[in-house]
Nucleic acid binder design. Structure first.
Lengths: 341, 341
DNA sequence: GTGAAAGCGCTAACAA
DNA sequence: TTGTTAGCGCTTTCAC
């Protein structure tokens, strides 16, 4: 935005007509003389005219831009979801502006402010694991900006959501562990305030109870931080007295399960013979790691598309909006990190 | 952008002062009475004021937004580069707007137009493999918008670039194959007009010549499309008469090499005993696939950061700009898809 | 230290 | 069918 970009005014002057006529012609309004329109379009081409969306946005009070916040772009689940959003959004004339919270609540708040300042027409967010207070998001909602939560959602927000059935996915995963003979199944989860972690934990607990296994509090760990703490916790579990050690690890997600698998390999603990491991998400590496990781897959690309669809529905009909939750299917992918039935 | 967002005007009225004073106070101008400033800031807080970047942008003719175009967000190399850009950009007050070309020239052109319409302050682009004509990018340059190319660059554009030494990386990879006893090394590349593919091919050819191996045209393939064609081409190579078959495959990148590895596994062709495979980029899966893939790693995150740095330098000093090319180091990661020396 | 006023590029009444 | 005009929210001279 710097040099001598042509404006509708330039076109108007060259053609000796008014700027409103140019504006109309450019926007393909019906009440414009065909000749005039043709001349305008040609002149626009000639002057290399490019509409100024900034000015348009200011005037029409819509930016045709959506804000997206994810914890970490480079996690495949998120980049794949973003990819789905981007494609769907582009099809409807929306551009997207992307931020990462890097799992930091403060950064997430800043991101929200920045997107609000940019007057995005909607916000699609997957919350950081640290996020507990949702006032920053609520403030957007109060300003009538449609918000769609995906994957990392919160019960405290009455908005559209795209999730998978975390409870069900976790139940299936845990049941699979039980059916393959595991009894001391540990859950490696996130912070106590982390919604999806709690959902998955509930699925895990319900599966245990359903099979008459009494949960052992010792085997349920809540990591405050998702990068290094999980490994520490697993090491701790492995150093318990033999009889108290877990025979299976159900991890909150693949980014936790994969390093765990590597740790076990380093320690020469055989998987799945001595200990089984299950993840969640189905990151691409999970299929390739040795042994390949049994995991619960989430349809990331579709979730992204769906999130945009929910935004569109809402923005078309702002008045009578009811916060729907789209629940997508998970699939248990049985691979080689768990025993055969 | 819809409801009753407070404006500086609202603040001015409430405080019974002029909007210019409010503007000054908000921007922390020096010539504002401390009392006034305090009152303004408090009122802004109270009214939940959020500056309108759209209006600011229109007025100051800068958006503080950068456009990024990549072929595919969900390829780890790109999401990781974007992540680096995002972090660096955020530190300097820039937001980013992201597009995917999906390897389509037409889409890439549309992306460029959209970003131009949004008046981004700069463009960071990794070109689609289809892109041959660079007029769309040139037109931005003509409008004085700084452009930085990264990874997928073009010689035809006199702009800042961030690349790895593709020739050197390919040379090292090919030499490694030769040193481990391979003689009939195939190159699975991209379109003839694809710059990095040609660079890598040159490195490959030079390594062969350096070791007195006469290149076999039959073993050099150029895929027009990067998703399905490479596998077809490899199948073709494998169906050649025994003596003409390759004993090594040097693939343009890991997204090609990984499926190739799977194909070979399906066909029960032992890697690296019967055939060696080398990739480029170092996608995360490459370390985990069995056998793990020997590849040339690129510092994706750093390349992203560097690209932003080059943009910043250029935007600070638009007048005397010389198009630097930052060449980053590649590392040959020898893993198990190639034989031991 | 503060205010009045112009204007960034565009859209959308309203008038002609 | 076209032109005139006001104004979106902000910054920035220029006065005072």
């Amino acid at each position: 935005m710097r040099n001598t970009q042509a404006t509708i005014r330039d076109i108007a002057i060259k053609l000796n007509i008014s700027i409103s006529t140019v504006s109309r012609a450019l926007r393909g309004a019906p009440d414009v003389n065909q000749e005039t329109k043709k001349a305008v379009l040609e002149m626009a081409e000639k002057l290399n005219y490019e509409p100024n969306r900034v000015a348009q946005s200011l005037r029409i009070k819509r930016t045709n831009t959506l804000g997206i916040i994810v914890p970490e772009i480079s996690l495949h689940f998120f980049s794949s979801a973003i990819s789905g959003m981007q494609e769907e959004a582009a099809q409807h004339g929306y551009s997207i502006m992307i931020c990462q919270s890097l799992e930091s609540f403060e950064t997430e708040k800043q991101n929200v402010h920045m997107l609000a300042a940019n007057r995005v027409d909607g916000l699609l967010i997957s919350m950081s694991s640290e996020t507990k207070d949702v006032a920053h998001i609520q403030s957007l909602i109060n300003k009538n900006i449609p918000v769609v939560l995906f994957d990392r959602v919160s019960d405290a927000l009455p908005v559209a959501k795209v999730v998978v059935d975390d409870h069900d996915g976790a139940f299936k995963a845990t049941e699979h562990l039980i059916q393959t003979g595991c009894r001391r199944i540990a859950y490696i989860g996130g912070p106590l305030t982390f919604y999806i972690s709690n959902q998955r934990k509930r699925g895990y607990l319900d599966a245990l109870l359903h099979h008459n296994i009494i949960p052992d509090e010792q085997l349920i760990v809540h990591c405050h931080e998702l990068h290094t703490e999980p490994l520490e916790q697993v090491k701790r579990l492995l150093s318990l007295p033999k009889t108290q050690q877990p025979d299976a690890l159900f991890c909150l997600n693949d980014p936790i399960a994969v390093p765990v698998l590597q740790l076990l390999k380093e320690k020469n603990i055989r998987v799945p013979e001595e200990i089984s491991v299950v993840g969640f998400t189905n990151e691409p590496v999970s299929a390739f790691i040795e042994p390949s990781l049994t995991t619960v897959s989430q349809p990331s690309h579709e979730m992204g598309k769906k999130a945009i669809e929910l935004f569109l529905e809402q923005s078309h009909d702002l008045d009578n909006f009811t916060p729907v939750t789209a629940t997508m299917k998970t699939t248990l992918l049985v691979r080689n990190s768990t025993r055969k039935v």
